[in-house]
């Protein structure tokens, strides 16, 4: 039977395409700023948000998004004050978020069977509500990035220059942090906490090996993200693999292939 006849697969594919297109849009600006671990740090903090929801009896989706957005602002605040230790701060936030999450989970009794899906994603179990959530975040993020593109580009290329030129760097960064945090929340739903950063960064790494402009890298990364998610889902179905790891492993293989292609064929 054709897999497209299954509602769960159609929903998974629609959500996957939206995730695959959205994650690299944020990823391009993070990689250009040399801040790639930001997504991973937020993803780990999301465990704290989820556990808080379970402990307090609030819908975990709400506490997760709240925790990730708060963490995004905290990380940006710390980055502005401790530029030279930005990567170390991300490592500390990542570990702290995970540790606090595990402590809280140990005090709650509601996690159990969902843990694997949370850690590695569960696109194939996405329901209509999740799909709406992902769709709304996709539209918001695309509108925000389109409107702020000039400023985001200037900041990504040279933040100090953007400040000197009087661009509203703080405001642009604040909006970008919200967009990035919501994107991480979407990526967690698709590939899980442990692999969310990969879906945000790997398509960008593939794109920069094939393009020669920022706009080109952005568009190519979006294309790569969609192809990886669609391909990974098909692999997952065909080979009976967990969907998140299938998407990420396909991305890694593609990245290695593109790197060799550039070195051996394009020779640059």
């Amino acid at each position: 039977m054709d897999i497209w006849h299954y509602g769960f697969f159609t929903r998974a594919m629609m959500a996957g395409v939206l995730c695959g297109a959205l994650c690299p849009v944020v990823g391009v600006f993070l990689v250009a700023r040399r801040f790639s671990f930001f997504a991973d740090a937020l993803a780990h903090v999301s465990l704290t948000g989820l556990a808080l929801g379970l402990v307090l009896g609030i819908a975990p989706g709400i506490t997760t998004v709240a925790a990730v957005v708060l963490a995004a602002f905290a990380v940006e605040w710390l980055r502005q004050r401790h530029r030279f230790y930005a990567d170390a701060l991300l490592a500390a936030v990542m570990a702290g978020g995970l540790a606090l999450g595990v402590v809280l989970v140990s005090k709650s009794r509601g996690f159990g069977a969902d843990l694997t899906g949370y850690l590695f994603g569960s696109l194939l179990t996405i329901g209509p509500t999740d799909l709406w959530f992902i769709g709304i975040i996709f539209v918001l993020a695309v509108v925000a990035v389109t409107l702020l593109y000039k400023g985001l580009l200037a900041i990504a290329l040279d933040e100090e220059y953007a400040r000197a030129a009087g661009l509203p760097v703080v405001a642009v960064n604040a909006v970008f942090m919200i967009v990035a945090a919501l994107t991480v929340a979407v990526a967690i739903r698709a590939v899980g906490v442990l692999l969310a950063g990969a879906l945000i960064v790997i398509p960008v790494l593939i794109a920069v090996r094939l393009t020669r402009s920022f706009r080109g890298a952005l568009l190519a990364a979006v294309g790569a993200g969609v192809i990886l998610v669609v391909g990974g889902l098909h692999l997952s179905y065909a080979l009976d693999l967990p969907s998140g790891p299938a998407v990420v492993l396909l991305g890694i293989v593609t990245l290695i292939g593109v790197t060799f292609y550039r070195r051996l064929v394009l020779r640059y």
């Binding site: 000039k150 580009l153 290329l157 920069v208 020669r212 402009s213 920022f214 890298a217």
Partner: peptide, 13 residues
């Protein structure tokens, strides 16, 4: 930086 950006893109900022 090493991220691909054309001369036009950089100058327009």
């Amino acid at each position: 930086g090493d991220f691909p950006a054309t001369v036009w893109e950089v100058v327009t900022t």
